[in-house]
């Protein structure tokens, strides 16, 4: 593969007695998007803040594009762009003024480049308004423009989809993919939106309680074998713990449905009117509402039904005038893999 744009070696950070990041080793390579996954309090933001110079590490080294952060601070940071937590700017200045200020600090005086990134993030209409008037999504877009205006070789984004609408998220994903795969930028993205990570990242680094647990290619992580392998890494009782933990913590991941009970397979049924469809299935006795294993989304139903009843399900739906747009068995998602891996964590 290509060279490492970011190398963390033995990175450690303590807040008082609590170790927040514990001997973390991590590489981000040119041309890849690395997802940085972990539950709240796992140390993701702390790590990012150390890389970007907010926090002083207690031990370990940070090397950015070949420059040691502590020994060659300004040169190291000159090849980084980033957003930490929410993108913060001077609210009394306009988006463009913020952008110009930041660009000048990077030695970029090229107006054409500034206009280019404004267009890239879709902020042409509002860029001359004061940031005070921006919504979170607009700040995210402007923040992204800031982060890339100086053509960084390493891009670090902490929860960049926060506050973006679905179209904005898709747009961001496209921009990041192009930057990484076409321009060779190394990108580190942390996020709670796991489904997004699945769509966006090439590799995923999983961090829990300050320790790096695994680094995998995204497609590897989706396979059962890999999960078993990781389960073995984590210890024998990780799977049992996962079941308990999952119920209590789904609130943290409110964009995705809660995982269904594992015994009966779950089916995803895409229909135009999921509510009426569910009622029809219920009337046919194929599905009992008391079971609690029903999830209804605007365009789809997620039902736990025995496989042998599926033919009857299709017939019932067609008889009731529902066009079956898609029917497939729900795969165990990255979500579940993630929860299993970090099952024994607490939010501190």
């Amino acid at each position: 593969m290509m060279e490492n744009r970011l190398e963390l070696r033995g990175l450690t950070k303590r807040f008082g007695k609590r170790i927040v990041v514990d001997e973390l080793d991590l590489d981000v390579r040119a041309g890849e998007i690395l997802g940085f996954l972990g539950p709240n309090g796992a140390g993701k933001t702390t790590t990012i803040k150390m890389i970007l110079g907010f926090l002083f590490e207690d031990a370990g080294t940070i090397t950015i594009d070949g420059h040691d952060l502590r020994r060659d601070y300004e040169r190291a940071l000159s090849s980084v762009g980033g957003i930490v937590e929410n993108p913060e700017m001077y609210v009394q200045l306009t988006g463009r003024q913020n952008l110009e200020l930041y660009a000048r600090l990077h030695g970029v005086r090229d107006r054409a480049r500034i206009d280019e990134v404004i267009r890239l993030v879709g902020m042409e209409q509002r860029i001359n308004e004061k940031v005070r008037k921006y919504s979170l999504g607009m700040k995210q877009r402007t923040g992204l423009a800031l982060a890339i205006v100086h053509r960084p070789r390493l891009l670090i984004l902490d929860e960049p989809t926060n506050g973006l609408d679905p179209a904005g998220i898709r747009h961001l994903r496209d921009i990041l993919k192009r930057l990484a795969h076409e321009e060779g930028v190394a990108i580190l993205v942390s996020s709670h939106l796991l489904s997004e990570m699945q769509l966006m990242c090439d590799r995923v680094a999983i961090i829990d309680q300050g320790r790096l647990i695994a680094v995998r290619m995204v497609h590897e992580l989706e396979t059962a074998q890999d999960l078993d392998m990781l389960g073995a890494v984590l210890g024998a009782d990780a799977a049992a713990a996962a079941t308990d933990a999952a119920g209590g913590r789904v609130d943290d991941y409110d964009r995705t449905p809660p995982p269904p009970a594992p015994q009966v397979p779950v089916w995803r049924i895409d229909v135009a009117q999921p509510g009426q469809a569910a009622a029809a299935l219920e009337a046919a006795g194929l599905f009992r509402p008391a079971a609690g294993d029903r999830v209804e989304l605007p365009r789809s139903l997620h039902l736990a039904i025995e496989p042998q009843a599926m033919l009857q399900v299709q017939q019932t739906l067609l008889a009731n005038g529902h066009v079956l747009l898609q029917l497939r068995r729900d795969q165990e998602s990255l979500e579940e893999a993630f929860l299993k891996l970090t099952a024994n964590s607490r939010i501190e």
Binding site: L52, F54, V80, V84, E88, M89, Y90, N98, L105
Partner: peptide
């Protein structure tokens, strides 16, 4: 206000 982030992230 967090605006110092803009300066800290800059080199």
């Amino acid at each position: 206000s967090g605006s110092i982030k803009l300066l800290i992230i800059a080199p």
